[in-house]
Amino acid sequence: MKNKVYSSFDEAVAGIPDGATIMFPGFGPPGIPRNLIAALIRQGAKDLIGICNNHGALGNLMDVGRLIETERVVKWVCAFTAAPHPSRKLAFEGLYEEGKIEAELVPQGTLAERIRAGGAGIGAFYTPTGVGTEVAEGKEHREIDGRMHILEYPLKADYALIRARRADKMGNLQYRLSQRNFNPLMAQAATTTIVEVEEDILEPGQIDPDQVHTPCIFVDRMVRIPPAPEGIWDAPTRT
């Protein structure tokens, strides 16, 4: 059996080159690959392109906001290029306004579906989302069944950094509750998928096949998150 279990996050992200396109899941605190992001920052790859719902969150927890602060990111594809409230601005917004980072603002459902399409081999798709808005500018329009749609293209990545609750040594994954969010989609749309796992990695067969959320064929490397403070674990945050 091919060994997919790595002993450290640094080892798991060691080969990520400058210029790589990387997908980062997470919605609110759950499902963010905080340990892999920290390792990527230590690793130092630059000129990165990120695909992520947001560009970080307020507070001190490790997330993509910390990576963006290093100014090693050239482009960010996301559903939020501004904070919901001007008082909650993050580093990204300043860099974006100064033109130091390029961004593509995508409606969240279109972002999810573009990633799904990327992993599913779909060439493009038509959606009614964004018709009549700035998002539709320059895109192909087509009326289908009496309703206007716009054409959207898939998103793929060189790497996806994933956080899962449970895994077996083959790489079958399970997520818990809203931790799932973008994780299964991104695991499928990336050439190389690296996972941080919250529980001890199980022997093959210990996860019921009917309960696998991401099949092992989409997983390349896994690292078990060590206890704090070495490993990064969520703590309750109040928004």
Binding site: A79, P86, V106
Partner: peptide, 20 residues
């Protein structure tokens, strides 16, 4: 999703919710 004078915006799920 976007106020006057700001370069960025926060679409989130709003455009999908609005049409769906």
């Amino acid at each position: 999703y976007k106020t006057a004078g700001r370069k960025g915006g926060g679409i989130g799920g709003a455009m999908d919710l609005a049409v769906g």
